[in-house]
Computed example of a mutant assay.
Amino acid sequence: MAGLSAQVRQDRAELGIVMMLVAYLLFATLDTSVKWLVVGGVHAFQLAFFRYVGHFAISLIMIGGGGLSWSRFGSGQIGLVILRAVFLVGSTVLNFVALNYLTLTVTSAILFSAPIIVCALSMPLLGERVGPWRWFAILMGFAGVMVIIRPFGEAFHPAALLSVVNAIMMALYSILTRRLAGQIAAQTMQLYAGAVGTLALLPFAIMTWRTPQTGLEWGLMIALGFWGWLGHELLTRAHGFAPAGTLMPYTYSFMIYLTISGYAVFGNLPDRWTVIGAAIVVVSGLLIWWREKRMEVRHGRG
């Protein structure tokens, strides 16, 4: 029986890993589609609106299947749920704008400083202790970001700063998600993210509207919401099958996916400094993950 139980846990962990890989493939597909559309003249606000109106429609259908009563939509921490949604929507808009100027590899590499920022903010915001090893990894990660954006070099583009703020917003979004986990249903948080994005971006979408010229443009715009919703759904469910420590290294598949699609669709290959900076960010993120795993084992949680 013990062997069977271990096999079941292994199978569940493998399913969680597969879900994680598919979720980040969907996010990469979303970003690649957005870059293709925004370079083609569709405004980032319009694309962000479609991203969230589709997300909201699907979430409403899913959560409203059992009846449209306030008890199914209410939340005891509505302020934090809405603030979490604001950070996610703001992050999306900044990312979509940055994609008009930066390559997919650069935006994804900067975004992966978000877990490092989470670690830096976990002490003041969550009361968690951050030891010297993790502070070293945090400083190392920021050095990696500086290598990527090269703020004092000729290759610097101001849009890189948008990606940095995007990473900060994603970090704050992650911290709020961690705080609300177990208190608010994932479907409820999905619904509010879609609702906030739809309502906040509707006026900007109207002001910047450009009617898609082809069926492919329409199809990609409509699919943005589905890819975003399904990616977040798989990401949430993956953590129900495997612990975060097991799943975390697979998040870097996102960078691999975008490097491939960036070359296949746009002919972009990362330059030497982007590769070096991305490698530093990845190593620092993995160092933080390793220290957190060690701490879990030391305290009997691993």
Rank of each mutant, 00 (worst) to 15 (best):
R9L: 12
L139M: 09
M1D: 12
T29I: 07
S71P: 12
W229K: 10
G285F: 00
A44V: 03
S69K: 14
F56L: 10
L235H: 06
T198G: 09
S253F: 03
A223P: 02
S5Q: 13
A160K: 00
M1G: 14
R178I: 14
H239I: 13
A264S: 11
F226L: 12
N268F: 03
I78M: 14
G66E: 07
A13C: 08
I280M: 02
V39Q: 09
A114L: 12
S75L: 06
A171T: 02
A44D: 05
L126N: 13
G262I: 00
S33V: 06
R84Y: 03
M189K: 09
F96L: 01
P158E: 05
V145I: 07
T29R: 11
M19A: 08
T188E: 10
L234N: 00
L111P: 09
A159C: 10
G277Y: 01
W209H: 09
G90A: 06
L47V: 11
V106P: 07
I206M: 15
S5A: 15
T188W: 14
I78C: 09
N166R: 09
V93L: 01
A23K: 00
F226D: 09
M170P: 14
V97L: 05
G245A: 10
I82R: 04
P115H: 01
S5D: 15
F241H: 03
I206C: 14
L201A: 00
A193M: 12
A195S: 11
R294N: 15
R237P: 04
L21V: 05
T214S: 08
P212E: 10
L80W: 15
G182I: 12
I184W: 07
M1A: 14
A155Q: 15
R178L: 08
Y24T: 04
H232R: 00
V86R: 07
I280W: 02
L125R: 04
A278K: 01
L37S: 02
W290D: 13
N100D: 15
V196S: 02
R84I: 05
I110A: 03
T236R: 03
M170E: 13
P203I: 06
P158C: 13
L21I: 07
I276R: 08
S5C: 10
P270R: 03
A193I: 14
Y192S: 11
F254L: 14
G74E: 15
A155L: 09
A143M: 05
F49W: 01
L102T: 04
A98Q: 02
F136C: 11
A200M: 13
A244F: 03
P132C: 14
E292R: 02
